[in-house]
Design a binder for these strands. Structure first.
Lengths: 271, 271
DNA sequence: CAAATAGTGTCTCTAAGACAATATCAC
DNA sequence: GTGATATTGTCTTAGAGACACTATTTG
């Protein structure tokens, strides 16, 4: 009887065909838009990073950043690498959204995708600066369920507007899958991946540990509240938000001044 | 400039090496053990299906059921197929646990695993009958965090006892990863997969929609309560459990009789 | 002072937890 | 009747939501 060592020395992975494996990342940021009124706080929008494809298939369509898994790295490392390549920012953490493995999902052949959500702070993106000639752009996101039960995903960036329509396919264990009715100019099955990522992010956003990643180290409680409100598309009364978050943050002795109204104290995340 | 059609006709996936992709499934069941006292209700235990490996590597070690992804199927279909092959039971639903892709996780080579939790009712397993000569066995599960912060996973089946020790590697977005300190006779990185699966199952078990899958169509509220208590390792007062689950179930007009105490009404899940 | 946000105090309401009491069966 | 589980009623409590009020800045 062969020893395990002998076995492994002679072992060859069978010649069955193998799939190509990719990681695709839905990278979200909270973007702030200055308002006309000097004393008003900026409006916040949930933004998603998309890349304009330079080659077939889906040439000139918009797609999530992503790429093939290299030998010697984990899928998480691959996902982080792809985001860093596109944004020059290394996200603090990523969250798995699911594996997309329908055999026909990629016209190039058998390619399965591991999808992740990543969260990036606007501050870190601004520090890096942006190459406006680049094919990577941040799109503002709107995602709603219509009365008919259909979901509408709208991504806008300047004059570009991508409108996808989807149906809820199944929800099990709190995870929702979507079927694309109309891709709205998004490549591959990325409209379905983005919808699943948004659903996962919204569910996760009630967890304060998650939303800190959208902000710099020091932040005001109002800005933290705006992050949660923007992602979950809800309104929270300030008094209640402050009470609920109080266990997760600690005061600094710094203030934000020059805003045309009472200065807000800066807080940091409690360790 | 080539059309997309031309492009795809000439496209070949690059010759980069590709990983083999597997689905591994942690299939759980709630097993009941008759007690000595005729009027006492049976004790419940959380059980996990393991397969004794017949070949290298890890020959004669215990492993999760699983297998390679075939061309033309999704990973979810692959996971369901593997469970049906081993148990003759097709689970109602499966929950993704994560992708395990550390390059060194499988001594045979570059093999990445997509892990799932599945839930099987004891009734459906009993109906199928069990082949006692088979290498597939149900192990009772215990999984606790020790005072030192280490996690102890103990799997027992008759005289066989597998004791693994693990450390919490990182928890992000509510998902916990484990590092194996001592595999306890489990194959590959399956001790870490089982730990992640158990953690996910425990978190999910507070959702009533999930725990119904452990029971037959008609069940007593006490049995449903025992399922939740067994998985989450907690005790719930019956009055409170009934109040909380009342919106999810509806009465039938049947009762369980002959138990040596007051008969319990059978309920079914509300649509 | 006006406009805007920052921040606090407290009432209400709901859902979960605790606990006591009653109901019904097999032996 | 006894011993067990089944089932119901209600008191208490913790936390979320609503709302009114005060504080502080810039122009």
């Amino acid at each position: 009887m062969d020893s395990e060592k002998d076995f492994l020395e002679n072992y060859k992975l069978s010649d069955y065909e193998r799939p190509s494996v990719t990681a695709d990342v839905a990278a979200f940021m909270i973007g702030s838009e200055d308002s006309s009124n000097y004393r008003r706080n900026p409006e916040n929008k949930l933004m998603l990073l998309l890349i304009k494809r330079g080659r077939h298939p889906f040439k000139d369509k918009w797609a999530l950043p992503g790429g093939f898994l290299n030998k010697g790295e984990t899928i998480e490392e691959c996902a982080l690498r792809e985001i860093e390549e596109e944004t020059s920012v290394l996200p603090v953490s990523i969250m798995p959204v699911g594996t997309f493995s329908e055999p026909e999902r990629d016209p190039r052949g058998w390619i399965i995708s591991n999808a992740y959500v990543s969260i990036i702070s606007e501050e870190s993106v601004k520090q890096v600066g942006r190459d406006d000639a680049s094919d990577a752009q941040w799109f503002s996101v709107s995602f709603d369920r219509s009365d008919s039960g259909e979901y509408h995903l709208v991504l806008s960036c300047g004059d570009i507007e991508l409108r996808a329509r989807l149906a809820e396919e199944k929800t099990s264990f709190g995870r929702t899958r979507f079927r694309i009715i109309e891709s709205g100019g998004l490549a591959f099955d990325h409209a379905a991946i983005i919808s699943a990522a948004l659903t996962a992010l919204r569910a996760e956003a009630r967890n304060y540990d998650t939303i800190f990643d959208f902000l710099p180290e020091k932040f005001t409680l109002t800005s933290l509240q705006k992050v949660q409100e923007t992602i979950m598309n809800i309104n929270i009364l300030p008094a209640n938000f402050r009470r609920m978050v109080s266990g997760y943050v600690e005061e600094t002795d710094e203030f934000v001044r020059g805003e045309g109204h009472r200065p807000a104290k800066l807080y940091r995340r409690k360790s």
